[in-house]
Design a protein around this nucleic acid. Structure first.
Lengths: 232, 232
DNA sequence: GGGCTGGTTATGGTCAGACAAATAGACGGG
DNA sequence: CCCGTCTATTTGTCTGACCATAACCAGCCC
């Protein structure tokens, strides 16, 4: 009967089991690292890693000297991967299609200037385009790019590849804000996505900065019935 | 000119800087752990932790023997915390209100039986209720609970506290699937949320299992204009 | 050429020991 | 009784050494 080696994974699974089985109830103080290390017959570092990961996953709460306790109501966090549209469509085994609808250099509308903290007199590139899967409309992209932050974008036609792909390749970014919301399809969005006016549309808004300077803001509207899903 | 101690945080920040500044371009192979450890004057374990975290954040890709490389297109993952409605509202400094609208024990509709893999003849508890903030409708909850999995729930009136809060306290769960989508407000949902028929509504659907057995399915519809936001 | 085999090497993980940082709780002075 | 200080305890992190595991690759045999 071999004594198998225990890894931090084993310890983690065991601790998780005790939490889920309510051996340690929510709010309870759990034994300290040294004690658990002795119990499992492993080094404290191993217990530490197991507990640290459980903490990151929102199941434990740790404070120096106060000890570790089970989170009263497990803080559940959902992780959504934000893939490139093209990759997302091709991963589903469908043919990716791209069409540029509009391209214009303009002064920014007020809400955009405020959101991106643009200087008065700044100019932005405004692009609208449609991504399709097997010929069916999939996502309508309404993008604004700051020409102050990214002058070279003015030379880019964007008739073959989407601004998303171009941007990811061309510029890094350090800060991102993403929102999920529901909007009503209107005008250009409705016609591009081939749906009725006022129809509910799942929408993602994303603003991106690089070293404090705003680069781009985009509103992505998905075709009818789209949902973002995650399991854990 | 003190030589301060370097921590895995310093290493991580430095590496992140090089990635963002394209010192190491996307797709590039980066130096091995031993080499970097020597460069920074720290133990290999320290470099390992820094790189491991960057990998978890989707910036690096690691494979044994093959080495570590910068992700070609940074896999960006958004983390959304899913708080208790009550906590969410109270955190915003508003008064939380709860009202039970409907409560019935019924056989499950077909789509639900399929989704929860319910046996023929199974019964479910169907609850509808409204969460409000400062008196204004905030979230409409349409919940189904499997009585096979959780018989004691039948004795619960749910007239004072919401099923969400009760469930979190009463039962653990091991697996969750969450979807975000946009729906049109209809019937009960529209009247509870005080909006027009057909108005777009941000919706979250969540199904929960415990040790392979389905516990509950819920559809949460938010009031007009609601958005889920995250920064990173 | 094709396929198997083993060596090499980078990352993955464990360990024991040490020190650092935070802070709950005891203690003491006003 | 209140408030500040001190200390003991707990988690946080680093180190350097070691073994484990995966997989690229060269060399071998057929």
């Amino acid at each position: 009967m071999g004594d198998e080696k225990t890894s931090f994974r084993d310890v983690k699974a065991d601790l998780l089991g005790r939490i889920l089985a309510r051996v340690w109830a929510p709010g309870d103080l759990v034994p300290g690292e040294v004690e658990l290390a002795a119990e499992f017959g492993v080094a404290r570092a191993t217990v530490n890693r197991a507990m640290r990961e459980l903490t990151e996953e929102g199941l434990l709460e740790r404070r120096r000297k106060a000890g570790t306790r089970v989170r009263p109501s497990p803080l559940r966090a959902a992780r959504f991967e934000i893939p490139l549209v093209r990759a997302e469509i091709e991963a589903a085994g469908q043919a990716y299609g791209y069409r540029l609808i509009g391209r214009a250099v303009t002064p920014p509308p007020g809400w955009l200037a405020a959101r991106l903290s643009l200087a008065p007199g700044a100019r932005v590139l405004h692009l609208t385009c449609l991504h399709s899967a097997d010929g069916a409309p999939y996502q309508f992209e309404d993008r604004w790019i700051s020409l102050a932050a990214l002058p070279e974008v003015e030379a880019e036609p964007f008739d073959r590849i989407g601004p998303n792909e171009w941007l990811i390749r061309a510029v890094p970014f350090s800060e991102v804000e993403i929102s999920f919301l529901a909007t009503a399809a209107e005008g250009e969005v409705a016609s591009a996505l081939d749906c009725r006016e006022g129809e509910p549309v799942f929408t993602v808004e994303r603003t991106t900065w690089w070293q404090g300077q705003a680069i781009t803001h985009v509103r992505l509207s998905f075709a009818r019935g789209h949902r973002m899903t995650t399991r854990y």
